[in-house]
Design a protein around this nucleic acid. Structure first.
Length: 428
DNA sequence: TCTGGGGTCCTAGGACCC
DNA sequence: TCTGGGGTCCTAGGACCC
């Protein structure tokens, strides 16, 4: 069988790069992007990394660095990032018939159709096209397995000399092993901090040591995921490309509030808002949900306030993607777990036990008739279309509240340049 | 003062069945 | 004295990922 060729394309500091596309003045400047509520750092430019800003660091912990070095700070602008991601993926799809979109900023391409001696050039061409058509810089790692292509990408980012593309096929194994020795075992895809801690006593601290270990022993000592990582490092492909988008098995919407909430009425608004958004996602993937879960909790970081956390789950009488069904149950569940007197900081709604919309479950009494489903579906389609065209929550349910004073803080969001006419880039 | 959100897969253990 | 054994399904929790 012919050797499969995997190319991983990874957008460099993706969220930062998205902001830079529309703001020439921050292209040479340290930049960070924050998580919801402007709390933690989730993306950093190379300049910001060099200044010592760590991934996941709360903003207040690096506030001084930010001021000292005039670091540009952004709230996350998911509408912008998702749209630019879609454009990047469109460009990539022209280079292969087999594309796996792995995350918002990464994709695997099957390059088995490219002759070995042209791989490097092909990778460079991918980079050039993506940059030219979207403004996003990417790194390309080419190898015989997914894990090795991840390693290649990591090396590209560490060493300027590769100029954005590393094809591991072009290097002797000895050379590759020397590079692997410089990569910590927890930086191997699939090996996390916990597993790395367990590997240390066995003297396995680098990717090279992991590669040279006995995969059967690793399986016994850790688990099957770690075993696959070993085999993949050895060039045995265990993780195939997955091009079919599998429908989600569960859909979660959970957000930290901009401030704490004590009032049941406000919690209802939050739960209703999250439930509405979750069921929208369920409809978008063509499913109906049978099971609804709700959770609320106080701020676990705040030691001074009494803590409380609970969740509740219940099943609907029949699977539904009709917002009022989900909304009613979610709010009812909230009532079963709400206890007054706590300062709630976060809540969430989780929908699961999906069925596809082709399946119609009817019952003896005609409560869930075909007509009823059709009517509900039509109504939801109209609501979705209006909200898509005129912006989220143009049409919404009363329970969601109007002002939503608890909603998240996003003080530094850039314009949604590519998805809202009113926010399009102006040139003066 | 200030600490993200949304997923997947695997495993162990209990319930249940024959 | 001595109290089977194997299979399946479900659930909760752990680990990992971006």
């Amino acid at each position: 069988m012919k050797q499969q060729i995997f190319a991983l394309v990874d957008c460099n500091n993706f969220y930062v790069s998205c902001e830079r596309v529309f703001m020439a003045e921050i292209r040479q400047h340290p930049v960070i992007v924050l998580s919801n509520n402007d709390s933690c750092v989730v993306a950093r430019s190379n300049e910001a990394k060099a200044l010592g800003i760590a991934m996941g660091m709360p903003l207040f912990q690096c506030q001084r660095l930010v001021e000292q070095h005039h670091i540009a700070v952004f709230s996350s602008n998911y509408a912008l990032y998702q749209d630019l991601s879609d454009r990047v993926m469109t460009v990539l799809s022209r280079f292969t018939s087999t594309l796996e979109v792995y995350s918002i900023d990464e994709a695997w391409l099957d390059l088995s159709h490219v002759p070995a001696e042209k791989l490097e050039t092909y990778g460079q061409e991918i980079r050039r096209r993506v940059l030219q058509e979207t403004g996003i810089p990417v790194s390309v790692g080419i190898a015989s397995t997914k894990v090795l292509s991840k390693v290649a990408c990591e090396l590209v980012k560490r060493h300027q000399v590769f100029q954005g593309v590393l094809n591991l096929f072009a290097w002797p194994e000895k050379e590759v092993d020397a590079w692997l020795a410089g990569i910590a075992v927890e930086d191997v895809w699939g090996i996390g901090k916990r597993s790395a801690e367990k590997l240390r006593p066995a003297g396995i601290v680098s990717a090279r040591a992991l590669k040279q270990s006995d995969h059967a022993w690793i399986r016994h000592y850790l688990n099957v995921a770690a075993q696959r990582a070993v085999l993949e490092l050895q060039g045995v492909s265990c993780l195939p490309l997955e091009t079919r988008k599998k429908p989600r098995q569960g859909i979660m919407v959970s957000l930290t509030f901009g401030r704490t909430i004590e009032d049941l009425r406000e919690l209802e608004e939050a739960i209703a808002t999250y439930a509405t958004s979750a069921v929208e996602k369920v409809r978008r993937q063509g499913s109906r949900a049978m099971q609804v879960s709700v959770f609320i909790h106080t701020n676990p970081f705040d030691r001074r306030v009494p803590q409380y956390a609970r969740n509740a789950t219940a099943a609907l009488p029949a699977a539904s993607a009709f917002t009022p069904d989900i909304l009613d149950l979610a709010v009812a569940l909230l009532h079963t777990i709400y206890v007054p007197g706590y300062a709630y900081k976060k809540a969430g709604v989780f929908l699961s036990a999906f069925q596809t919309q082709e399946v119609i479950q009817t019952d003896l009494f005609g409560l869930f008739s075909q007509e009823r489903y059709t009517m509900q579906e039509r109504l939801m389609r109209v609501v979705d279309e209006i909200n898509e065209t005129w912006g989220r929550n143009t049409l919404c349910f009363g329970t969601q509240g109007m002002k939503r004073p608890w909603s998240m803080r996003q003080l530094r969001r850039s314009q949604r340049y590519t998805t809202r006419w009113s926010e399009i880039l102006t040139v003066s």
